[in-house]
Design a protein around this nucleic acid. Structure first.
Length: 294
DNA sequence: CCCCAGGCTTTTC
DNA sequence: GAAAAGCATGGG
């Protein structure tokens, strides 16, 4: 919940599973009570100016019926995939904070998800404010995601310790944070513009360390754009194996990225291609690649 | 030792 | 222009 971009509802609702995080400076604990109930504890009545129920309805994207994400004929055209997707429909894409989303995905380049989460966790612990949450009679310490101002003033060498020792990544994160802090990069404004996807993507790509894939991730997870369809190594693989895309056999380049993006929209609902793609992504990772990380 | 992981930047043809 | 090398580390 802290650094992941998804939340898979536990269909069995078996245990004391809970997540703690800080959202817009408010410490929060989300606990799943059953297969269709969650319990939310927060230290404030409002988050980002919204009542808790309203905030989390939006945060968990409960306005999206995930079974309606795919085109109606998808289940007939791809029955074997539809079968596999069965238990992945409770998957929620979270509408996360734009800055946190941007920095998090800038850490996700050609390395494993565990390493990516380690980086984000170190960023929180090194540069984020700590807060405590009272839960079941005990205090839980949670590290807030660092502010743009804090990262903007960080030392590149020191910060690179949080970015897998990659100094170029550390420098790009600091520059992006500076842009955010002084207003040159205004993702909230960009989101309100409701630009065509290609235009939004090109704008995001002006940020150093952000290419097509990460731009699409920022749009999908942080800018309320469920039409954005990030293509990473896993997506490329399932496009080839599941949808017989010959374009997916080529290595990913800017040109082939755009080709694959256009092709995917022919069998996915273009307005929700990213949401559908994310369900496919996790199904592919777990069912086919047997990866456990979620 | 190899290749692969939620890729992007720089260099080289 | 497009392709290849460099970045960095952990795991199979």
């Amino acid at each position: 919940m802290c650094s992941g971009q998804t939340f898979l509802w536990d269909l069995h609702g078996d245990n004391e599973k809970y997540y703690s995080s800080i959202m817009y400076s408010v410490p929060v604990i989300i606990r799943q009570l059953s297969s269709n109930e969650i319990y939310i504890t927060a230290s404030e009545n409002e988050i980002n100016g919204l009542p808790l129920s309203e905030y989390f309805y939006h945060y968990l994207a409960l306005d999206i019926d995930t079974e309606q994400v795919f085109p109606e004929k998808f289940c007939r055209v791809y029955p074997e995939i539809w079968q596999l997707l069965g238990e992945y429909f409770p998957l929620r894409i979270l509408r996360q904070h734009p800055f946190e989303t941007m920095i998090s995905f800038m850490c996700a380049q050609g390395i494993g998800m565990r390493l990516i989460r380690n980086q984000i966790s170190m960023l929180r612990q090194t540069y984020g404010e700590t807060k405590s949450i009272s839960f079941s009679g005990k205090e839980i310490i949670v590290h807030q995601f660092p502010s743009p101002e804090r990262l903007a003033s960080a030392d590149p060498i020191a910060l690179s310790r949080c970015t897998n020792n990659n100094r170029l990544r550390a420098r790009n994160i600091i520059l992006a944070a500076q842009g955010f802090a002084d207003g040159r990069i205004d993702l909230d404004y960009l989101s309100r513009q409701k630009l065509p996807l290609s235009e939004l993507r090109n704008t995001l790509c002006r940020i150093g360390g952000v290419g097509y894939k990460i731009a699409d991730c920022i749009a999908l997870f942080g800018l309320d754009r469920f039409d954005a369809f990030p293509i990473d190594t896993h997506v490329k693989q399932y496009l080839g194996k599941w949808f017989n895309s010959t374009k997916a056999l080529r290595s990913l380049s800017p040109a082939s990225y755009l080709d694959l993006d256009a092709e995917a929209r022919t069998f996915l609902n273009p307005d929700l291609a990213g949401y559908a793609g994310h369900i496919l992504f996790h199904c592919w990772r777990k069912e086919i690649k047997k990866l456990r990380t979620f």
